[in-house]
Design a binder for these strands. Structure first.
Lengths: 216, 216, 216, 216
DNA sequence: CATGAATGAGAGTTCATTCAT
DNA sequence: GATGAATGAACTCTCATTCAT
C-alpha cells in the first residue's frame, strides 16, 4: 500500500505546504503537482478535484483533532475536571504542534463561509464544544471551577490554543517566539494551565501565601 | 469630494463584504464591481489593481487599530497599568466590533506569507507589541501584575481578542454567541478583564475573602 | 453597430464553418477563435460560453426558418392549399440554400438528446407541425388533397427537404448533385412539387390524358 | 468465443447507446467503459482506440445495410422493378428498425467531413446508388416508372427512409409517431410505397376510377 | 470620470492512451 | 485477458488588466 499510494502522499505533502503559506485559493493545482513532482491529472484522479483535496485534508485534520479531545475527555471519570481540562489542552497543543502546517491553513480556512466548513462545524466543532462544556460543568458542580459561562470560556480557550499555530509568522517575527520548536509547546502549555488555575479555578499565589500566614 | 468618490466607497464596501465571506483570492474583481454596481475598470483606476485594493483595506484597518491602541497607551502616565490594559482591551474590542467585517478578513489574511503582510507586521504589529509590552513591564515593576513573560501574555491576549471576530460563524453556529450584537462586546470585555485580574494580576475571590478574615 | 460587433460576427462565421464540417463537439473554441482571428475569451464574453454560441446559432437559424414557414402559411387564406404548400416548400428550400452551412449542423445537432434541442422542438418544430398540418387538413377538406395522415406526410416532407442540406457531401460525391449551386434549388423544388401533385393531390399524367380521351 | 469476447460486446452495446444520444465526440471512452462495466484500457485493446471503435460500428452497420439492399436487388431478375424497389424499401426499413440505435448515430456521423466517412461513401453508398439507379432505369425502360432522374429520386427516397431513424425524438415528441414500435415500420412502409406508386410509377386513384368509367 | 470591448495568461478539469502488473 | 495507475495534451472558462472612447 505504501508503495502504491506514493503519488497520493506526495500530493498531500505538497498541498499542505502550499496551502499553508499561500492559502487554498492562492494555490493552483499545477503548483501542487509541480512541487509534488507528479502529473496534474493525478489530483483529479485521486481526490476528485481541488475541492476534494481540500475536503480530504480538512477531514483528515479534524478526525485526528477530535480523537485527541476524546482521549482527554475519557479521563473525566477517573480524574478531576481540572486535570482533565489540562490534559485536553496538552493533547490539543501537541496535536497542533505535530500537524502545524495543516493546522494553520485549516484554521484559516474555517473562517470562510463554505459548505464544507459548515459541515465541519456541525460534525467536529459541535462535538468539541460538547466535551469542553461537559468538563466545565462538572468542574463547576464539584466547586473546583469558578462559576463561568462555558461558551465564553470556550472562546477564550480556543483563541489561546489557535493563535500560535494560525499566526506562526507573527509569533516569530514580532514576538520572537518559535512556535515550531518543541519546547514552545511545553512553555505555552504552562501558560494556558496558569489561565486554567487562575481564571477558571480562581486560585492564586497570594492565597497560598495568605493561607500560610493564617496557619502561622 | 464625498459625491465624487462615491464609486470608490462603493467598491470598498463591496470588497469588504466579499473578502469577508469568500476571502481575497476567492473573490474576483468582476464580482466586486458587480456588487458595487460600478465598472470593473474603476478598480484598477482607483486602487491600482486588486492587490492595491487589498493594501488599501488592510492599511485602513490597521491605521485605525493602532490609533485605538495608542489612545489607551497614553493613559499609562495617568492611570494604573491594569486600568490602562483594560482600556486597551476595551478599545480594541470596540474597534473590532465596529469594523468586524474588515477585521475578519484582515485577521485571516495576515496568516499568509506575503510581502504586504510582512510590511504590516513591521509597521503596525511591532508597534502594538511595544505598547502592550511596556504596559506589562510597568505593571510588573509596580507589583500590580504577576511576574509574566510579555510575549506569552501577548499571544494569549491577541488570541482571545481576535477569536470572536475571526470566526463569527463558529461563534454563532456552534457556541450560539452573537458576536455582532453590541452587548456581546460588553460581556466579552468583562471576560477578558477577568483574565487580566486573575491571571495577570493574580487576584482572586478567595484572597479577598481571606484578607477580610485577616482583618477581622 | 456594424463596426462594434465585428468580433461577434467573425466568431459566428468561423463557428458555423467549423461546426458544419466537424460538428459541435468536434470543434474547440480555440479553433473557432483562431479561425475568426479573435481572442478565445471573446466567445465566453459574447456568447456566455461555447454552449451559448450553439444556442445562439440554433435559435438564429430557426427564427428565420419559422418566419419563412409563416410567410407561406399566410397565403392559405388567399390561395389553394396546394399552392400554399408549394410556396412553403419553396420558401424552406430557399432558406436552407441561403443558410446551408448552418442548416447542416443544426439538422445534425437536433438528432441529439439535449435540453437545447428539446426546447427547439417545443418552440419551433411544434409550430411548424401545426402550420403544415393545418394546410394539409384544409386541402383534404377541400378535396384538393387525397385523404392522408398529416404526421406521416410531414415525416416524408421533412425528410425530403432536409436530405440535400444535411448530407451535401453525399450529394456531391455519390450522387453528383451540387446542392450548393442555385439551380439545384429550382430543380429539386420541382421534384418535391411532383411529390405534392402525385402523392398528396393524387394527380397524374395519365389522368390528364384519360380526361382528354374522355372529352374526345 | 462468445464467452471470451463478452467484454467486446459489452463495449459495443454501451458505445452504441451513448453515441446514439450524445454523439461520438460527445461521448468519452470512460463513459463507455463505465456503462459497459469494463476497464477503460479494453477499448484501446480491442478496438485500437476510440476512432477504431467508431470505424467498427460504422462498418458493421453498413455491411448489414448493403446486404439488405443486395438481397432486394437480386429480385430484379425475377420480379418487376416496382416490386423490387418496394422490397428494397421494406428491407431497408426493417434493417433500420432492428438497428435503430446504431442507425441514428451513423446517419448523424456521415454528415461530417472525415476520412472514415469518405471511405464509407465510396465503399457502401456508391454501391447502394448503383443498385437503386439500376432498378430505376429498368423501371423506366419497361415503362413501369415515369421518366425520372435517378439521382433526384434517390435523394428523396433516402431522405424519407432516414428521417424517422435519424430524428426519433422529433417523431415522438412533435409528431407523436413512435418509430421504435414494430407497427410503425409497416405503416411507414405503406407510405413510401404510396410515393413509389404515385410519384415514381405515376399511378393514382382517379385513373383507376377513370379506367373503370371507360370500361363501363 | 466612467465605460465596454478585448486580451494573454492561467485556472481546474477531462481527454484518450499507455504500461507494468 | 484484464486492470488501475499515471501521463501529456487539450479542453472550456475565468482571471486581472488595458485601452480607446
Amino acid at each position: 500500500m505504501a508503495v502504491k499510494t506514493k503519488t497520493k502522499e506526495k500530493v498531500i505533502d505538497a498541498a499542505v505546504s502550499l496551502f499553508n503559506t499561500k492559502g487554498f485559493d492562492g494555490t493552483s493545482v499545477r503548483e501542487i503537482a509541480k512541487k509534488a513532482k507528479v502529473n496534474v491529472a493525478n489530483i483529479s484522479y485521486y481526490f476528485d478535484g481541488k475541492e476534494g483535496l481540500l475536503e480530504s485534508l480538512v477531514t483528515m485534520f479534524f478526525e485526528g483533532y477530535i480523537k485527541e479531545i476524546e482521549k482527554a475527555f475519557q479521563f473525566l471519570d477517573t480524574h478531576s475536571p481540572k486535570e482533565c481540562l489540562m490534559l485536553l489542552v496538552r493533547n490539543v497543543l501537541m496535536y497542533q504542534h505535530e500537524h502545524r502546517h495543516i493546522a494553520r491553513f485549516v484554521y484559516r480556512e474555517i473562517s470562510l463561509d463554505t459548505i464544507l466548513i459548515r459541515e465541519v462545524m456541525t460534525t467536529y466543532l459541535t462535538k468539541e464544544k460538547f466535551y469542553i462544556k461537559t468538563i466545565l460543568e462538572r468542574g463547576m458542580k464539584e466547586r473546583q471551577f469558578r462559576k463561568v459561562q462555558p461558551p465564553f470560556i470556550i472562546v477564550q480557550l480556543k483563541g489561546m490554543l489557535m493563535m500560535p499555530y494560525l499566526h506562526p509568522q507573527y509569533m516569530t517575527e514580532v514576538l520572537h517566539l518559535f512556535a515550531h520548536e518543541p519546547y514552545f509547546v511545553d512553555h505555552y502549555r504552562k501558560e494556558v494551565e496558569s489561565w486554567i488555575s487562575y481564571t477558571i479555578c480562581g486560585e492564586n499565589d497570594s492565597s497560598n501565601k495568605v493561607i500560610l500566614q493564617l496557619k502561622s
